[in-house]
Amino acid sequence: MARDVYSTGIERFFEDDEIIVSKTDLKGRLTYCNDVFLRLAGYTEQECLGQPHSLIRHPHMPRCIFQLLWETIQDGKEIFAYVVNRCKNGDHYWVIAHVTPSRDKTGSIVGYHSNRRVPDRKILEGTIIPLYEELLSIERRHANRKDGLKASSEMIKQLLGEKKVQYDEFIARLQAA
């Protein structure tokens, strides 16, 4: 499903007691979306199922964070990450996502499951948005997208190295502060 990367600059919100839920297959194609997901993103279930989860990828989301997310879940681990998503009409919404592998009875990974909650605005505005703007700026400085991704990945690795934490611990410490 082709779509523009048009952004309105308008942020949408959801309630603290709501959870956005989606499931994908191993290739990231949507196999389930709950009503909160559909309402907030502005899509119908028919428009979503079978489509790549990147359908809601916002152009201001650093690629290196998605790379880190995919590496983590494909390794069989869970991850928490702040994510800005794009609605069908170009609006956006922020979430704190908890993404986990889904396993069959034998323990094999058969897909991925994500629960998203309302993010902490103080963390979002004080840490995440400035960090993501810097990462995105690094990515955009390179004419070659692969070079941009490599450079932003190095920057996030350097930041985590200075703090002597892995990404999940970095996010957990932000949440606990």
Rank of each mutant, 00 (worst) to 15 (best):
164 K>P: 03
30 L>F: 12
151 A>G: 13
145 R>T: 15
175 Q>P: 01
82 Y>H: 13
127 T>W: 05
51 Q>P: 00
104 D>T: 08
131 L>N: 03
56 I>D: 13
15 E>F: 00
171 I>D: 01
43 Y>I: 06
93 Y>F: 06
52 P>M: 08
173 R>C: 05
164 K>T: 10
92 H>A: 02
35 D>G: 10
38 L>H: 01
116 R>F: 07
104 D>K: 04
53 H>M: 11
14 F>A: 08
118 V>S: 11
84 V>K: 08
171 I>Y: 00
55 L>R: 10
25 D>R: 11
93 Y>A: 07
147 D>M: 13
47 E>I: 06
87 C>Y: 09
38 L>C: 14
159 L>W: 00
146 K>M: 14
157 K>V: 13
138 I>W: 03
23 K>M: 09
24 T>Q: 04
44 T>I: 13
89 N>R: 06
95 V>E: 06
70 W>I: 12
121 R>Y: 05
19 I>D: 02
20 I>Q: 01
35 D>L: 10
151 A>W: 00
91 D>K: 02
18 E>M: 00
175 Q>I: 15
48 C>K: 02
67 Q>W: 08
151 A>D: 01
40 L>F: 04
93 Y>I: 02
61 M>N: 08
129 I>A: 02
68 L>T: 14
91 D>M: 11
33 C>W: 00
121 R>W: 08
84 V>H: 07
86 R>I: 04
62 P>A: 02
14 F>W: 13
109 I>L: 08
123 I>K: 02
157 K>T: 13
41 A>P: 05
79 I>C: 07
168 D>W: 04
62 P>W: 00
69 L>K: 04
11 E>I: 10
64 C>V: 12
114 S>T: 11
98 H>K: 15
13 F>C: 11
144 N>H: 09
81 A>R: 02
80 F>E: 13
14 F>M: 13
47 E>R: 08
55 L>I: 15
176 A>M: 12
104 D>L: 00
106 T>I: 04
76 G>K: 07
90 G>H: 09
146 K>Y: 09
14 F>Y: 06
16 D>E: 13
151 A>M: 09
110 V>G: 02
103 R>C: 06
25 D>K: 04
94 W>G: 04
139 E>P: 03
69 L>I: 15
23 K>C: 07
131 L>V: 06
38 L>K: 05
149 L>I: 12
50 G>N: 00
135 L>G: 13
27 K>S: 11
155 M>N: 03
29 R>G: 03
37 F>V: 09
116 R>P: 01
137 S>G: 14
54 S>C: 08
66 F>A: 09
80 F>M: 09
93 Y>L: 05
115 N>I: 09
97 A>R: 07
130 P>W: 11
153 S>Y: 01
92 H>W: 10
64 C>K: 05
93 Y>W: 12
37 F>D: 00
130 P>D: 10
87 C>S: 14
